[in-house]
Write a protein that binds this DNA or RNA. Structure first.
Length: 211
DNA sequence: AATGCGGGGGT
DNA sequence: ACCCCAGCATT
């Protein structure tokens, strides 16, 4: 059961996303699970522009997991270096490729891979396959905390449950819009004047009442 | 749930 | 040099 505000937010966000979605190579249609995974794996703690710079070259040199399995860790480090965290990332990718022919499609199985947590697992499956999973990073958390304030739970498990209810069948469009909205509008310094939610967002209403 | 970690980015 | 930080790992 969604509240009135929850339904409005979801609808408004989807509409906003249609016009404001950012284009990235890893968001192109028909990307494989592996291709989306590589992007999300790189995007943690790394600006999208940096990832965009190395992404095509990486996929060209390492088009599949078994190519990674055949490569040396140094070769991986070399390509991934501009992103930072190159040693950790190369080691994790090498370990994943040496134990898997293909990536699992269950969130828990993905999370069992080294350096793969809740965010990367859910984002990968949602964006590659449209799975109806909650995608929750710090930006998204900030958005929800502002809009829903009191109803936004404290513990991570409850936050995932809360978010899960809001994700519609168009999960991919919704979660992509959510990430872009957090990056473009509901930033640390939010642009409330241009925000579609400023009639019901708890944060904006409070800021208004304090003038 | 709390803490630690490796390391990028900004000041 | 310093502090802040996101996401994952570990306890």
């Amino acid at each position: 059961m969604l509240s009135e505000v929850e339904r409005r937010f979801r609808t408004n966000l989807l509409e906003w996303g249609q016009k404001n979605r950012r284009e990235y190579p890893w968001r192109e249609l028909n990307r494989t699970l592996y291709e989306v995974f590589v992007a999300e794996f790189f995007l943690t703690q790394t600006p999208a522009g940096n990832v965009a710079a190395v992404y095509p070259g990486f996929l060209k040199q390492f088009p599949t997991l078994d190519v990674i399995a055949e490569a040396t860790e140094d070769e991986l480090v070399e390509v991934v270096e501009p992103l930072g965290f190159q040693n950790m990332r190369a080691a994790a990718l090498k370990q994943i490729a040496s134990t898997h022919d293909h990536l699992p499609t269950e969130p828990a199985s993905l999370m069992a891979l080294p350096r793969v947590g809740q965010y990367v697992a859910n984002a990968t499956l949602c964006f590659a396959r449209g799975d109806r999973l909650p995608v929750l990073d710090r930006n998204v958390e900030r958005v929800y905390r502002r809009v829903f304030r009191d109803r936004w739970p404290e513990t991570e498990a409850d936050q995932l449950t809360f978010t899960q209810r809001l994700v519609p069948d168009e999960a991919r469009a919704y979660n992509l819009a959510l990430l872009d909205f957090g990056a473009l509008v509901c930033q640390s310094e939010p642009l409330c004047k241009q925000c579609f939610a400023n009639e019901y967002c708890a944060y904006f209403i409070e800021s208004e009442s304090y003038g």
